[in-house]
Design a protein around this nucleic acid. Sequence first.
DNA 1: AATTAACTATGATATAAATCATATTATTCG
DNA 2: CGAATAATATGATTTATATCATAGTTAATT
Lengths: 230, 230
Amino acid sequence: MKITKTSCDLSSCLLCKNSVAGWLPLIDANRQMLSFKKKEVIFSEGSLVAGVYFVYKGTVKIHKAWSPQKELILSFARKGDMIGYRALGNDQILPITATALDDVTLCFVALPFFELSLQSSHPLTYALMRFYANALQEAEKRMRNLALMDVKGRVAETLLMLHHKFGADEMGQIAMNLTRQVMAAYAGTTYETFFRMLNELKAEGLIQQTDESLILLDAEKLATLTHTDP
Amino acid sequence: MKITKTSCDLSSCLLCKNSVAGWLPLIDANRQMLSFKKKEVIFSEGSLVAGVYFVYKGTVKIHKAWSPQKELILSFARKGDMIGYRALGNDQILPITATALDDVTLCFVALPFFELSLQSSHPLTYALMRFYANALQEAEKRMRNLALMDVKGRVAETLLMLHHKFGADEMGQIAMNLTRQVMAAYAGTTYETFFRMLNELKAEGLIQQTDESLILLDAEKLATLTHTDP
DNA sequence: AATTAACTATGATATAAATCATATTATTCG
DNA sequence: CGAATAATATGATTTATATCATAGTTAATT
């Protein structure tokens, strides 16, 4: 990790978007741009909360370890996304780890200033509340999927999420370069199984593999796999 | 469901606790006490959000269906707990179902008034934000458990949660009367497997079954099952 | 450029947990 | 109160998915 002089335009993060213009200079004075190299841990489960971060460049995985060899990826964060916010609960101990998946630049805002911002801006607090409400809905949907949906459905769900989150280029390739292992850790399965499921989906003509990425040929049908059919 | 004249003391729910005294009469004017019989559905997945509810009496399960025969219980709500709050995200469609597990009395607050309360009270918005933050942490922990922990660990986790949520009487019996099927649906397994796991835990002397409930004989050791041990 | 380390690819095997089957016992309710 | 419905209890069987094993490829790092 190192401090960098890159700086954002104070306009794209949740904090800036929900602060009045007069507050921006204060934000500017209280933020710190940090950069992390690929694979570097940004913060880790069990450590104390320092503040919140906004992703400026790169991709971050938010994950929870189980055994040293196993983890579940909870989400991916990209430009504009906030991370570290899970720390605003009662517990001052971080429940998750954040790791850079490529070279990442972040804007860090220490907790005291963030709390001050919350106290001084009702719209910000309200926006954060809504943000959490959405995150909770999403988390609970995934809870059900992990408990009751089969792996193939979760793989389909993962691909659809990636397509939605990262977008696709002109050829339809999902604009990400995540490894299969990483995708598997999001889907909540092993990479061997993930790989087999990709093969099945390929055989069924729902996806296509390219050198660099994946193309969803039939998002409709993929979505079907993520629904119950009794 | 029917409207009832029972009324609470306007002091125990998140809304009342975070409103100034002057607001309480307004709450009083805008709430409605409702009662539901055992097994009655309070609101269901896919329907439109009407407002939030505070449990006054009884136990409610918050669940998400998969196939008609399968569901995951996300949480149990008891006196003082708020339900329906998952609806405050961007989506106006409820993502979950709430069902009465016994006879339940609720205090209902319609969405417009609840939103008005949020707008007029920063502390309330802040409290709700923190509430969500905690719920999210909890949900994500369970996500990992469902994905990576074995069933026995999840059963142990379920028992510890029940003990914590419902408390225990002088004999150590957990003060709830949930069926095994319900507990299994919370643990994310079938009731047959849940039953087998209870047998194992009994054989290991960690729990004891009574006619009416369960006693945790060794909470320490149960907790061990919920941690990684490589 | 060479060496290590990480990721992909597949088949074979093992196993945890779901499903199926069938009694038995409670509980609800007309 | 007695019929019907739901919950418990257990064994047998199946199946989805993880684990193990082994190679081949690509990507990092010195």
